[in-house]
């Protein structure tokens, strides 16, 4: 009984993680503007990764590997928002159409 429960939890976590990753793929392909595309891409790196890592933890049981998996999640939670922030900054500084005021001072 407990085994089935664990399998069900694993399947639920993995499927929800996969759905979020799929949403991210469609979002990145559907939007045309860089800042819009960043939004689903950031979601895949944080929430999607967390759900899939939790699925791996549930599947393999709790031991030392759990710590390593959670370390991967922590690493991505630190780095992915910083990446999004840097991309957004670059967009603001280079996209002359949408951010005229900021991009005006730079002439190539």
């Amino acid at each position: 009984m407990l085994e089935y429960l664990r399998l069900g939890l694993f399947a639920l976590l993995l499927l929800s993680g996969l759905i979020i990753q799929l949403t991210a793929i469609f979002g990145v392909n559907r939007f045309r503007f860089a800042v819009n595309r960043m939004h689903p891409a950031g979601m895949a790196d944080t929430l999607g990764l967390l759900l899939m890592a939790l699925a791996a933890v549930v599947y393999s049981g709790f031991d030392w590997i759990t710590l390593k998996i959670l370390l991967v999640v922590a690493l991505f939670w630190i780095t992915s928002p910083v990446c999004s922030h840097l991309i957004g900054r670059l967009v603001r500084e280079t996209d002359e159409e949408h951010f005229e005021a900021e991009a005006k001072e730079w002439k190539p």
Partner: peptide, 12 residues
């Protein structure tokens, strides 16, 4: 997939 966000573009 290709033209999905044109409405969003004009709105923005």
């Amino acid at each position: 997939l290709e033209n999905g966000d044109q409405a969003l573009d004009t709105e923005m």
